[in-house]
């Protein structure tokens, strides 16, 4: 089955003047593991073309084996594509993982300060900026807390503050809330959309949770599995802030879930 793109490559809503039209440009990217030409090499991503416009919130959705995390690693520059190009004009993107990946030998505040330090911020400015970022994720009092003293939701908020500390134009998120309970996740969805709307951040958010994708994204891109291809995409026209239990969110989720199930079923027929 050929990949069906419902919306074309035209950059709707993007700035038309000299500013870059894309915050992330993924152009005909292929990725396989193993040596090129080797018959055992496994294709993971097949001809992915996807743009994230400046300030846009895009959710990448797919079943396991669709290579969503691989794609994110490529965009983050942690790995190279086998073919095709990836451009991130705004410089190195920030990356948030499913595990908080905070450094346990540092306090919450120092974790944020380390990102600021690696960005080259002078010492005097770091402390105040870290305070500001922790305030932004509503953890103003947690500067001196150790990572193990924080709950799962608090750790992900510190991780978000640390990612924001990189001052990147693009934030990549790899199922960052998958390990949290429903209420905590709901709160973090709200915080993320709030922070996103207050900044000019572009977000590429990977998830396998359809409702989460519809709750958060302006656009939802469905990847097929083995190899990962862009199967279909939806523009979510609902205004923010949405709630995960909104009827409109539920309706679109049903439609997307049906499509995702179809993608998964295809693999059963081989």
């Amino acid at each position: 089955m050929a990949p069906a793109l419902t919306t074309g490559g035209s950059a709707r809503g993007a700035v038309e003047d000299g500013a870059p039209a894309a915050a992330v440009r993924i152009d005909h990217v292929h990725k396989s593991f193993g040596r090129p030409g080797d018959r055992r090499s496994v294709p993971v991503l097949d001809d992915i073309t996807l743009d994230v416009r400046p300030g846009e919130f895009v959710c990448l959705l797919g079943a396991s084996g669709c290579g969503k995390s691989t794609l994110l690693n490529l965009v983050a520059g942690l790995d190279r594509p086998t073919a095709g190009t990836i451009e991130v004009p705004g410089g190195r993107p920030a990356l948030m993982f499913q595990e908080h990946a905070l450094f346990p030998w540092l306090t919450a505040g120092r974790n944020v300060e380390l990102a600021l330090r690696l960005r080259g911020l002078p010492r005097e400015a770091r402390r105040a900026e870290a305070e500001r970022l922790l305030d932004l994720v509503r953890l103003g009092g947690a500067h001196r807390k150790r990572v193990h003293e924080l709950s799962g939701g608090m750790r992900q908020r510190v991780a978000l503050a640390r990612a924001l500390a990189q001052n990147s134009r693009v934030l990549l998120m790899d199922e960052p809330f998958a390990a949290l309970d429903a209420i905590t996740r709901d709160v973090l969805h709200h915080e993320l959309t709030r922070i996103w709307s207050e900044t000019s951040l572009s977000v590429l958010f990977v998830t396998h949770n359809v409702r989460e994708a519809v709750r958060l994204g302006q656009r939802v891109v469905l990847l097929s599995s083995r190899p990962g291809r862009v199967a279909r995409e939806w523009t979510v026209g609902l205004p923010q802030p949405r709630r995960i239990e909104d009827a409109a969110v539920a309706d679109l989720s049903v439609e997307i879930t049906e499509e995702l199930r179809g993608e998964i079923r295809r693999h059963g027929r081989h």
């Binding site: 924080l150 709950s151 709160v187």
Partner: peptide, 18 residues
């Protein structure tokens, strides 16, 4: 709505913190 959420968040933080 914002206040409810902040309260919820504070409650979660207090309940979960080690």
């Amino acid at each position: 709505a914002e206040g409810d959420l902040a309260g919820l968040e504070a409650g979660l933080d207090a309940l979960d913190a080690v």
